[in-house]
Measured scan of single mutants.
Amino acid sequence: PDLGLTQLFADPNLIENLKKNPKTSEMMKDPQLVAKLIGYKQNPQAIGQDLFTDPRLMTIMATLMGVDL
């Protein structure tokens, strides 16, 4: 199971919303991170391994779920 990750990354406004959010806007200036996020739309399971190697993803996930870290 993808634990709902498919829906989190399926939002067509995902990148724009993250660019507008004060907690994630600075991160979204990294083209490699943006490319990763776009890739998760097609393969949400890929985030599982990346969560352990890129701490920014935890902040992004929390933001998408509405959790304040």
Rank of each mutant, 00 (worst) to 15 (best):
V34E: 06
V67Q: 13
F52K: 15
P22D: 05
M28V: 04
K23T: 08
L3A: 14
F52N: 09
L14W: 05
K23M: 11
G48A: 15
I47S: 05
D68Q: 02
K36Q: 10
A62Q: 13
S25C: 08
L37Y: 00
K36M: 12
P44W: 08
D50L: 04
L3W: 15
S25E: 09
K29W: 04
L57G: 01
D11Q: 07
L64I: 09
M65D: 04
L3Q: 13
L3K: 11
N13E: 10
V67L: 14
A46N: 13
V34F: 03
I15K: 00
A35W: 03
M58L: 14
K29I: 03
L64M: 07
Q42L: 09
S25I: 06
K41G: 14
K19E: 08
F52A: 12
L33R: 00
M65K: 08
R56Y: 05
I38L: 15
V67H: 14
Q7L: 11
L37C: 02
F9T: 02
K20P: 00
Y40P: 01
M28P: 00
G4R: 15
G4V: 15
F9M: 07
D2F: 03
T24D: 00
L3Y: 13
L57H: 01
A62R: 06
D68G: 02
V67R: 07
K41W: 14
L14Q: 03
M28N: 00
P1N: 11
P22R: 07
I60V: 07
T6C: 12
K36D: 04
M27F: 14
I38R: 09
Q49L: 12
D11V: 04
P55V: 10
T59Q: 11
L69F: 06
L18T: 00
G66D: 12
T53Q: 13
A62P: 01
A46C: 07
M27R: 01
L18I: 03
A35K: 11
V34L: 10
M28W: 01
D68N: 05
F9P: 01
L37H: 00
P44T: 06
A35M: 09
M27Y: 11
P22V: 06
I47Q: 04
G48R: 14
D50K: 03
D68S: 02
G39H: 13
F9Q: 01
L51M: 14
P44C: 05
L51I: 13
P1F: 02
D54M: 01
K20E: 08
G48I: 15
L33E: 00
K19F: 06
E26Q: 09
P22S: 08
L5V: 09
I60S: 00
L69D: 15
L3V: 13
N21A: 04
K29V: 04
T24F: 07
A46G: 11
P1H: 10
L3M: 14
G48H: 15
M58K: 13
K41M: 15
T53G: 08
K29N: 11
P12N: 07
L5H: 07
P44S: 06
